[in-house]
Design a protein around this nucleic acid. Sequence first.
RNA 1: GCCGAGAUGGCGGAAUUGGUAGACGCGCUAGCCUCAGGAGCUAGUGGGCUUUUAGCCUGUGAGGGUUCGAAUCCCUCUCUCGGCACCA
Length: 826
Amino acid sequence: MNAPPYRFNEIEKRWQTRWEETNAFQADEDSDKQKFYLLEMFPYPSGDLHMGHVRNYIIGDALARYKTLQGYSVLHPMGWDAFGLPAENAAIERKIHPAEWTDGNISYWKTQLKQLGVSYDWSRELSTNRPDYYKWTQWLFLLLYERGLAYQQGGLVNWDPVEETVLANEQVIDGRGWKSGAPVEKRRLNQWYFRITDYAERLLNDLDRLDGWPDRVRTMQRNWIGRSEGAEIQFQIEETGEPLPVFTTRPDTLYGATFMALAPEHTLIEEMIEGSPHAARVMPEAQRMRNQTRQARSDADAEKEGVFTGFYAVNPVNGERIPIWIANYALMDYGSGALMAVPAHDERDFEFARKYDIPVRPVIQPPDSTWDGGEMNEAYVEDGVQINSGPFNGMPNRQAGKAIVARLQERGLGKQTVNYKLRDWLVSRQRYWGTPIPMIYEQDGTPTPVPVENLPVTHPRDVQITGKGGNPLAQNENFVNCISPRTGKPARRETDTMDTFIDSSWYYLRFCSPRFNGGFVDQDAARYWMAVDQYVGGIEHAVLHLLYSRFISKALFDAGLSPVDEPFENLFTQGMVTKDGAKMSKSIGNIVTPDEIVSKYGVDTARLFSLFAAPPEMDVEWNDSAVEGCYRFLNRVWRAFHRLLEDAAPTAEYEVEALDGDERAFRRLTHRTIQRVADDISDRFKFNTAIAACMEFVNALQNETAPFSSARAALLREALETLPRLLSPFAPHIAEEMWDALNTGKTLQEAGWPKYDESALAEETILVVVQVNGKVRAQLNMPVDSTEEAVAAAAKGEPNAARHLDGKTVRRVIYIPNRIINFVVS
RNA sequence: GCCGAGAUGGCGGAAUUGGUAGACGCGCUAGCCUCAGGAGCUAGUGGGCUUUUAGCCUGUGAGGGUUCGAAUCCCUCUCUCGGCACCA
């Protein structure tokens, strides 16, 4: 009756110290156990840390602990995605070096995560800003360069005016920088790219293999890659004889092309029109369209605009002259930046043609129609039969499309092709706090890679970070000036750094052997641990980090340097934590920090709430009184456990055959709870219902009152040995403390996940519902597997059922054994 | 506009895949205990009705359908959230 008070502070501290002293979570690749590599997306260690961040790690930890108890050899590491712009901004504000700010945040985060009792193998901690890590990021860059997958090219790029750097396409959301939110500008710059488009087809096809990924994420990647099948068709510019290639998914409509549309950025505009009689009229218009922001131009109901160039193209299929326009809806970064416009069969082209009075010529007739291509009110985009198409008239349009391409191909003027939305990954950044790109430039500008033995190329510490005047690295003469290892002559270093998404595109491999010096990863360790069995993180990286990592894995796999070409076997995307309806964020001011909760209720309560409030994939609204409910539950657990511990038998030994019905029912509950908790965790991490099952179990234990028979006391002991282990993935500290009090001579980890006895689960009697015409009229407690006759007889004996059956004719009886009996009467 | 997910008590959410809707928790109500309680314990809690130890009706966004039986399957619609979006 005198349970010790639940002093969560002491308990949590004691066990965290114990875990640390015994290296309880150190992963072991020499184990003959089955491996399980569990990874949460490593964080950017920013200045704040709130329960929204924490949920991610608690979900992962609950799984890690469960898998450990199940007997897996678990790798559960943690590290820091530590390069990035906020560190530079903080450095400007506080006049300290970004490294100082970053290291301060890392130690803060580490303390917090340790305080939460997350079972990381801290001996594998890594940080992308440390030379022993980014040396290998640089090595990766050189590997890709060597394999032709990294290249430098001039062209139009996205420029973030706030971050003062270029961005990859994936980092531009609705025409704005993904972090800064500023509208991006187009600039023409020479930049470094990774040739991710070489992998477009594999990145797309292999999504089908990723059955352990949410469909949502796979769909988003498919959309992003944006594969479309079609044809490349060569038009010719009448005046110059130059080719004008276009991509189309509808070669069947070629005879209906009545104008060409060039993107305003198309290089042909300068080449062809500058200096021509049309220049004065056309060039200012083209310039004006270029200046429209991407946002304004891609808005769905943006006004279509264009200008006739004065030039004509020749249709390769019939020699027809077609006017070439510049149109704001033509996109430079899709296809060839030019398109053949068929107003009769494309809504956008139709709208444009109507506005500028360009002819609309139908070439597809709806099936079973006698419509002759008269006046049209909208584009006809469905399938049909060719008309106005010379020798192809009368053919079904899809078939005609193939025939037209085949005809063009014979003359070298067209071919079947596949086009992707995906662009190459622009990886250089004009920032200081990133991995330096290990390239130098000879005096003539030729790039030379830094030899591998000279890596890492480290940051100079003596820089002025002011946020003004561009990249501080470029202003540091000591850094910039160097001697070329190739020619021995003075040369200049590349001063751009890498996109931080490169750092994070391979860190999961480094975790296999984080201290390895002989290469970016020890291949033996990688073979043991890879792929990541379960990856846990936010949906916001669906096309960023998750696409880049897949690409890098494939590139490394092709180089024989990664054992897998898909890094993440299973992906789980957890929901956000909201408060007052908004995502927790320092700027909104609605954050709850783990400290507040931990000091008031303890870590186990904070963890329990995070897991219990909602299924982990759903968003969850922070709720103070629900947190308190979790705290009350742990107190109930604590009191019930200690009260019963006094009366329980010293061992859980009993004769199953000697148990009476009531005792068998109690035993059934214990074993059934083990089964339910395991099933719920295994089935999409339903921690919320797993915890609910534990609550029901505890509620039943609370109702147990002395005196107990000796069999009952042994069954209680079994229940008390079960409960801490079931709770330990969720509330590990209180679980360890209770387990310790049992004095079993084993640690909780050694004892492992409790086993349930299949035969203990079998129900003896079961509630059978009696329905009359589908409405519940009675409930029967029947022996399991009773016959229909027995149940029907018992049902008729129930007064309420009998009342509804009285005087009626039974038309039919539906009996589902152990569940329901339904009398259909009239 | 296209694609995807969803809509269940006052609230968060359950429901063994077609078989008692509302598990578990929060909140609320009443009682016990207490100097006190923002502690603990007990009972109740979808809505409505009646002759209230019990029974009846109704109820899972709206409407229709299939079925002995539908939160679950089918059709139509409404709304919410997420993604994509002038991609030729």
